[in-house]
């Protein structure tokens, strides 16, 4: 009971953060609302027995990605005249298709039986079990992802360097 109550609360908090992220004018405020979404998502992961991933979400997303975005925004010092000012046909079409996607998924949504959720052992999602899952069944994907990270490091340095 407590778990589902907290999940409802954190889910609504995530939606709230997402909406204010789009509405706020200043990119730094936007990034902080984005941080709210990430933190509430981390809470949901923790309540869904993904303890290790909840930690990683805080470390990687909030501690690295969000802070990096804030840092670069502060570094660049641009004028933020942005906003949704100009209404164009492309934008309206995009909004229309986003709305259609939302309504369609809701209409076609067939509810799952929540009582059928599997019973998991207490070690489910903790780092030991999680590590076994990675290194036993998903080793190839893990190696591919590590190569992807290496490529991203090289690309990031190359793109951002001065000529």
């Amino acid at each position: 009971m407590f778990v589902s109550l907290m999940i409802y609360l954190l889910g609504l908090l995530a939606i709230l953060g997402g909406i204010f992220m789009l509405l706020s004018k200043n990119p730094i405020t936007s990034a902080l609302w984005f941080g709210l979404v990430l933190i509430s998502n981390a809470g949901i992961y923790g309540l869904l027995n993904a303890h290790f991933l909840a930690l990683i979400q805080i470390l990687v997303y909030v501690g690295a990605i969000m802070v990096l975005i804030v840092y670069v925004v502060a570094l660049l010092n641009f004028d933020d005249k942005d906003l949704m000012s100009k209404i164009s046909l492309t934008k309206l079409l995009g909004l229309l298709f986003a709305l259609i996607l939302f309504v369609e998924t809701l209409v076609k949504f067939s509810p799952f039986n929540t009582d059928k959720a599997a019973n998991v052992s207490s070690s489910f999602g903790k780092s030991a079990a999680f590590g076994m899952e990675i290194f036993k069944n998903n080793l190839f994907g893990f190696e591919i992802v590590s190569i992807l990270l290496l490529v991203a490091v090289v690309a990031g340095v190359y793109i951002a360097k001065k000529d």
Binding site: M21, L22, P27, S30, A31, I69, V72, V73, D80, D82, L83, M84, S85, T90, K91, G94, L95, A98
Partner: peptide
């Protein structure tokens, strides 16, 4: 919606 509506690269 954010990609369509906002014009700031960061957002």
């Amino acid at each position: 919606v954010g990609i369509v509506v906002r014009r700031n690269l960061f957002v």
